[in-house]
């Protein structure tokens, strides 16, 4: 590796990596086998979902490969099972494992982007609310209070229903994923806003922020470059835990039939569809997507819990 004199003056990235591996957070991570297991499970779910088109044994949405003769094949280890369909098939002969992987892809995407949306919205509003203060702060916080008095699922249903009635059917089916992201995202911003506002109120009175004001930095620059990096710790914790909640909310909506359509099913849709066959003996159609959902949400939640404890110096 060629090293210039400039590289010598700056610490190489290896240092940063070593510092990360040596940090208290990584230490507490290594110390807890449950957390390591949760991280591995999350990683597997994530890779399995994102790389579904390449990893899944079948493409359940390719009508050419579907064969109704394969319908209701039980999992491989049962008498009538075949190794071709590891977790069996559903009523249309689609491979359950593959539909889970494709479904998780949609569930994760909706969860991830709705959290991202909620985070962006909430963090911005919280930052402005805390830093600017005054009437604007009061207004934003009252809106948050009002929203908190409704259950999150109700608001999501409202937005979803609004989109359903205003948009034509074909347009609606195409944009439903975005509508879901919007609906679930809107329900989540309050938590970020409140947390960030609280931390901002603390940070803005710290001397480093005052120093930046004395220097004459623009308020927006102070918020973005000084305050924001120092209030993000708790936000990451909330985001992780909210990812699990968002995935569940999406599953709930889809289970109720107001989420993604069965042509592009998420885990929630799969559970709903499979639910019809639960008592006729074909339990695998609904149990496996359900189990996948539980495992995924549990793993993400455990990670979030650990992150909260690791970032909170009081609990250490």
């Amino acid at each position: 590796m060629a090293t210039t004199s400039r590289d010598l003056a700056r610490p190489p990235t290896r240092n940063a990596l070593r510092r990360a591996l040596d940090s208290d957070i990584f230490y507490s991570f290594r110390r807890s086998p449950v957390v390591v297991a949760a991280a591995i499970v999350t990683l597997i779910c994530f890779i399995g979902a994102v790389c579904a088109p390449w990893l899944a044994p079948h493409n359940p949405f390719d009508l050419k490969t579907l064969n109704l003769i394969d319908a209701f094949t039980p999992p491989a280890w049962m008498d009538e099972g075949t190794r071709k369909f590891l977790l069996g098939t559903d009523d249309q002969g689609r491979d359950v494992l593959s539909t889970i992987m494709y479904g998780a892809r949609i569930s994760l995407a909706v969860g991830f982007f709705s959290v991202l949306f909620a985070m962006t919205l909430g963090v911005s509003l919280g930052l402005i609310s805390g830093y600017v203060g005054g009437a604007l702060d009061a207004f934003i916080m009252r809106v948050a209070d009002v929203q908190l008095s409704f259950p999150a699922i109700l608001i999501a249903l409202l937005i979803d229903g609004l989109a359903r009635t205003t948009l034509p059917r074909d347009v609606h089916d195409r944009v439903i994923v975005y509508v879901l992201i919007l609906a679930i995202g809107i329900t989540g911003w309050v938590q970020y806003a409140r947390t960030v506002r609280g931390s901002t109120l603390v940070e803005k009175n710290k001397e480093y922020v005052q120093a930046a004001r004395v220097i004459g930095r623009h308020p927006v620059a102070i918020m973005a470059r000084h305050v924001l990096p120092n209030v993000m710790g708790p936000v990451l914790v909330i985001a992780t835990i909210n990812l699990a909640i968002a995935i569940l909310t999406e599953a709930t909506l889809s289970f109720l039939g107001v989420g993604v359509p069965p042509t592009q099913p998420s885990l929630g849709t799969l559970i709903r569809v499979g639910n019809d066959f639960l008592f006729s003996g074909e339990w695998w159609i609904t149990i496996f997507p359900g189990a996948a959902l539980v495992v995924m949400v549990l793993a993400v939640n455990l990670l979030g819990d650990w992150l909260r404890d690791a970032l909170n110096p009081k609990l250490r």
Binding site: Y208, I215, N230
Partner: peptide, 13 residues
């Protein structure tokens, strides 16, 4: 310019 009291709070960590 200004120099502040608390050296632990006056520099962005």
């Amino acid at each position: 310019q200004m120099i502040f009291q608390d050296p632990y709070a006056s520099l962005n960590p």
